[in-house]
C-alpha cells in the first residue's frame, strides 16, 4: 500500500448510524486525518457542504431521510451544488452488480464494502487518489468516467454467506 500522508485532508462522513459514524471517524483519525465533519443523512450533508470545504466524502448508501444515492445525485447535478467534483466513496452493505451500477450512474468515485477496516478504507482513499479521473458531462450524467469503476467493481469481493463460510471451512453448506 502506498505511503500517503492524508493528515490535512478534510473528510465528510455521511452516515445515519451513530456507531458507524464513530467507527469511520475513529479509523480516519487513526490514519492521521485531523479534520472530520459528520452528517446524519443526505440533507444534512448538503447543508454541511455549503460551509465545509471537504476534500473527500464518505457516504453511506442506505440511510433514513435523504439516502446516499440521492445525496450523490444532488452533489453532482444540482446547479447550486457547492462541490460538484467532490471525490465520493460510497459505503455499502449491498454488493450486487445492479446496485453498483445504480451508484456508478449517479457519480460515485468508488465503493467501500461493509464491514470496513482501516486497511479497506485506506485502500479506497488511495484508489480515489491514484485515479484522478476525467469527469464526463452528458445530458443525463455528470460525474467521474464510469468505465474504470465498473471494470474494477466486477472484480471486487462478493457478499459473505453462510454456505461460503462452510465451504471455506470444509464443512457442509
Amino acid at each position: 500500500m502506498s505511503d500517503f500522508d492524508i493528515v490535512t485532508t478534510k473528510v465528510l462522513i455521511v452516515e445515519d448510524n451513530l456507531h458507524f459514524r464513530t467507527l469511520i471517524r475513529t479509523i480516519l483519525q487513526a490514519l492521521g486525518v485531523e479534520t472530520v465533519e459528520e452528517a446524519r443523512d443526505g440533507a444534512e450533508a448538503l447543508d454541511v457542504l455549503t460551509s465545509f470545504d471537504a476534500d473527500l466524502a464518505i457516504i453511506d448508501w442506505k440511510m433514513d431521510g435523504l439516502d446516499g444515492l440521492e445525496c450523490v445525485r444532488r452533489i453532482r447535478s444540482e446547479e447550486d451544488s457547492s462541490n460538484r467534483y467532490l471525490p465520493i466513496i460510497m459505503v455499502t452493505g449491498y454488493t450486487e452488480d445492479s446496485l453498483a451500477r445504480e451508484a456508478r450512474d449517479v457519480g460515485v468515485n468508488d465503493f467501500l464494502s461493509k464491514p470496513i477496516s482501516a486497511r479497506s478504507l485506506m485502500s479506497r482513499i488511495i484508489s480515489v487518489l491514484e485515479n484522478e479521473q476525467e469527469f464526463i458531462e452528458t445530458e443525463s450524467y455528470f460525474g467521474p468516467d464510469r468505465r474504470r469503476l465498473q471494470a474494477k467493481y466486477n472484480g471486487d469481493e462478493r457478499r459473505v454467506s453462510k454456505s461460503a463460510l462452510a465451504e471455506k471451512e470444509g464443512g457442509v453448506a
Binding site: D3, I6, L31, D55, T138
Partner: peptide
C-alpha cells in the same frame, strides 16, 4: 459528451511519504 479535467483538490492535500504517511506500521496501529 463533454470531458472535463476534475480539479485535483484531494491529491494536492496529500503528500507521498510525508511525516504522517500511512505505512504498514501505521495501518497496523489503526
Amino acid at each position: 459528451v463533454r470531458v472535463i479535467k476534475a480539479p485535483d483538490t484531494l491529491s494536492r492535500k496529500v503528500i507521498k511519504g510525508g511525516p504522517g504517511a500511512v505505512d504498514p506500521a501505521a495501518l497496523e496501529r489503526a
